[in-house]
């Protein structure tokens, strides 16, 4: 039921040409070229601050491009409106809410890309939401409060939420960050199911862990550039310094994200927002 295999006629899910993203005046992604074909499972890897999350957020339109172009299913991003074809799983479980919300409601909000205004959920909608919870192994927890779930379960709920829109393309921003091993394995099982059903998946990850066997292709970013694009790599290879660079220079100390100015004025956004 959730199967929506994309055929080549649907177009190329993601194509970035010479894409650049500037945050607060600092270039964070520079001249990135990336094409993701239908049905591919691509891992976007790199160290903290390498621009991998920014790149995937640029694909969703959350970060405007400062240069270059991006197309989703052959439609330029500014003119793209088939949002039901995109399933986005953000990095963190949304900001804490002041009112309780059930798992069902959070997963159900993924269905909004296909719902009309002022219409109640149809029986079909309910079945899809139920199926989505089953894929990530959260069936039976529909009525539980989202805040009572563990971090790993919340992350699975966010994947179910993306799944509820029956998308063709999944964009996952570090779903395994801070998630324990059993939950990472549950996530890997859910992604394997999606991949088998023909979904195209772009996974941003610092380390792959149990996801490693699922990957078709690895893309590695460093300092905002794509430095490797090819066969899957083992976790330790990603961080080896000679990868994709003709010459190497060593930076000492913590690789801090340098595009974030420290601000403390009352009306400035807090630091975490300048991702």
């Amino acid at each position: 039921m959730l199967r929506r295999p994309s055929s080549p006629a649907d177009g190329v899910p993601v194509a970035l040409r010479n894409a650049s993203v500037v945050i607060d005046g600092r270039p964070v992604v520079r001249g990135a070229d990336l094409t993701v074909e239908a049905g591919e499972f691509v891992a976007l890897m790199g160290a903290n601050g390498s621009g991998k999350s920014t790149l995937v957020r640029a694909m969703t339109g959350l970060r405007p491009l400062a240069g270059g172009s991006a197309t989703l299913f052959d439609t330029p991003l500014p003119r793209f409106h088939d949002w039901h074809r995109i399933g986005f799983v953000p990095q963190r479980a949304g900001a804490s809410s002041g009112v309780p919300a059930s798992v069902w409601e959070v997963v159900g909000s993924g269905r909004l890309s296909r719902r009309r205004l002022f219409r109640p959920l149809s029986a079909h909608d309910r079945r899809i939401i139920h199926d989505a919870m089953e894929v990530v192994g959260l069936e039976g927890m529909a009525q539980a409060g989202i805040s009572t779930l563990s971090g790993g379960q919340q992350q699975r709920a966010l994947i179910a939420r993306a799944l509820a829109g029956e998308p063709d393309l999944f964009l996952l921003d570090e779903p395994t960050a801070g998630v324990d091993l059993p939950n990472q394995e549950a996530l890997a099982r859910a992604l394997a199911t999606l991949s088998e059903r023909g979904a195209t998946i772009v996974l941003v990850a610092h380390e792959l862990g149990p996801m490693a066997p699922l990957i078709d292709r690895a893309v590695v970013m460093r300092h905002g550039r794509v430095v490797y694009d090819g066969a899957p790599l083992a976790d330790h290879e990603v961080h080896s310094s000679h990868l994709g660079e003709a010459h190497t220079h060593h930076h000492h100390g913590d690789p801090r994200i340098d595009h974030v100015p420290v601000v403390a004025s009352p009306l400035d956004p807090p630091e975490e927002d300048a991702r």
Binding site: G61, L62, H81, W83, F88, A101, E105, L112, S113
Partner: peptide, 22 residues
Amino acid sequence: VGLGPQLFAVAQDHEFAKVVGL
């Protein structure tokens, strides 16, 4: 009540809501 699902989603996770097309 009528726009409940939309208003809920926007406040729950505004980035996701944007990618859903709201």
